[in-house]
């Protein structure tokens, strides 16, 4: 089987949040979406470290929006998942699914 790069857990979570948010995926809603869905609080720094890593790997692309006075004149940095990112997500999902397959309820439901 060909060697593929798999996503880490946080990378998957962040990528999925970006996919969910479609055109409105920038720092604040990404963090809030993650917090809302899985109750995990990410710091701003941690989120951007992950997003930078994903961009370096070519899984997301980013661009700057309009600066606003609410942000003190700073622009928002929007993100979008690239096709390679979607492929990586599917691969990770398939890998996990394959690993979960056949495991009994004692794992899926907890002891």
């Amino acid at each position: 089987m060909a060697r593929r790069e798999h996503l880490g857990e946080l990378e998957q979570i962040v990528l999925l949040a970006v996919v969910r948010l479609r055109d409105d995926a920038y720092g604040v809603p990404i963090r809030l979406e993650i917090e809302r869905r899985i109750g995990r609080t990410l710091t701003v720094g941690a989120l951007y470290r992950t997003l930078d890593r994903l961009e370096l790997k070519g899984y997301v692309t980013s661009w700057f929006g309009e600066p606003t006075s609410e942000r003190g004149g700073r622009s928002k940095r929007y993100f979008k998942v690239r096709p390679s990112g979607l492929r990586a997500l599917r691969a990770s999902h398939d890998a996990l699914t394959a690993m979960w397959e056949g495991l009994g309820p004692q794992v899926t439901r907890g002891a």
Binding site: G27, R31, G45, Y48, R71, G72, K76
Partner: peptide
């Protein structure tokens, strides 16, 4: 050290 986007996010959430 922080990027503009990071500090902008912090400010936005701090205020909003």
């Amino acid at each position: 050290r922080g990027s503009d986007a990071e500090l902008g996010d912090i400010l936005e959430e701090y205020l909003a």
